[in-house]
Design a protein around this nucleic acid. Structure first.
Lengths: 221, 221
DNA sequence: CAAATAACTGAACGTTCGTTTAGTATCCTG
DNA sequence: CAGGATACTAAACGAACGTTCAGTTATTTG
């Protein structure tokens, strides 16, 4: 189960331990002493390297964001998102990263907003590009809002991976889990599942109830 | 901003304060002293009523689950899920409840599993029933797994309500926010957004890569 | 109205937390 | 190989935590 990450800097080892601990016990629930014990060092050394517990938190955030972007870049460059084998390798290495990501998104922190924003920006671009490639049809509304809903749906699966793992009987943070759930996701996105007419009709009914269909953002408080 | 909940039992007031605090600061991050201060009582009284901090946590869980079931029951009975006005009223009252629910789901607790399981059971039933009413088409795979994916998608929106609120400029835990995002959700579910053929084709490609297409749950560890 | 029960408080307890400090080992550098 | 930086530890500090306890006020009950 332990990765090939044995010969690391002590600093990196402490950070990796924290990345596993924070999602499990929360920031406040994770003690500096527990991190130190897991990393096999004294509590004082943790603060020597990161200044404070909050400094360690920031370092974890930065590292995970960096790794996520790296993963994404690599997936695009190597075309891994079409190659299940490559996905498998990436996932195995990235499991703690994904777990940390899911946790961070739930904290409502600044980092969470940043990550969500990055994803939305990327999916928005994909929506626009997708039209040219024929992947995306013509659609109504704001692409950014459409992207936000899509991202929320996808990240929902990430944040609830524990529950989905139970439902599917396969760890959802592995390639195997991803492959097991993908057909069900695609069945929804392809429009196979729901009756098109009823859905489109319901959508129009709701749109007609909107007080101001296209007014941007007004201060409600 | 404060609800009409002024004339409550002290015990209920403490519980309501805790329901607002736990999602904001986490269980460990929320102190008994803070709860007591918000409720205008002494810390000792909190423990007098709930035995311990963990006891208070359990009481909150129970109450929120109860309220959620009550909301669902009421929505079905009054047909409120088709009536935006009724939805608005329900949501206004239930905002802290929804926020607590979203938090609980992210903790991976036993309560989270219970809530997720309940939702999956209900949506599974709706999938089966939906076929008779024409809302649901014929589809492949296990209805329970399909339901799990659907529930995860929907709850993703709930758990990331902070981010969606920012993206939409409307509080997502209000009826107004629900109405603003619903068209985008329905646009996905109706199959309007993605190209049907490409999606269906991708799905089949993935299904063919599955080692054991219909084997139920095997121990991977 | 007296007695009993419940609601509630102030002060203190032992524990554990993040952090500091002073000092020791280890490593690089000229 | 001296010497300065860096890696690292043991011990302790004050603050804040959940909880306890003895005592006081309010409410119910016969």
């Amino acid at each position: 189960m332990r990765s090939v990450t044995e010969d690391l800097t002590t600093r990196a080892r402490i950070r990796d331990v924290a990345i596993e601990r924070f999602p499990k016990d929360g920031f406040v629930g994770t003690t500096v002493r527990a991190i130190a014990k897991d990393a096999g060092v004294s509590p004082a050394l943790v603060l020597h390297h990161f200044g404070s517990k909050e400094g360690l938190h920031r370092a974890c955030d930065e590292y995970v964001v960096h790794m996520t972007m790296e993963m994404k870049r690599e997936a695009v460059e190597t075309g891994a998102y079409r190659n299940p084998g490559a996905i498998a390798a990436t996932y195995q290495l990235a499991e703690p990263t994904l777990r940390y990501l899911a946790w961070t998104l739930g904290t409502g922190s600044e980092t969470a907003a940043r990550i969500f924003g990055d994803f939305v920006a990327e999916v928005t671009a994909q929506l626009v590009e997708g039209k040219e490639h024929g992947l995306i049809n013509e659609y109504h509304g704001d692409p950014r809002k459409q992207a936000a809903v899509l991202v929320a749906m996808q990240l929902g699966g990430l944040m609830l991976h524990d529950q989905l793992t139970r439902a599917f009987g396969v760890d959802m943070l592995t390639a195997e889990g991803l492959m097991a759930s993908a057909p069900y996701t695609l069945q929804i996105f392809s429009g196979e599942l729901f009756n098109r007419e009823i859905m489109a009709q319901t959508k129009q009914t709701i749109e007609q109830l909107q007080p101001t269909p296209d007014t941007e953002q007004r201060a409600t408080k």
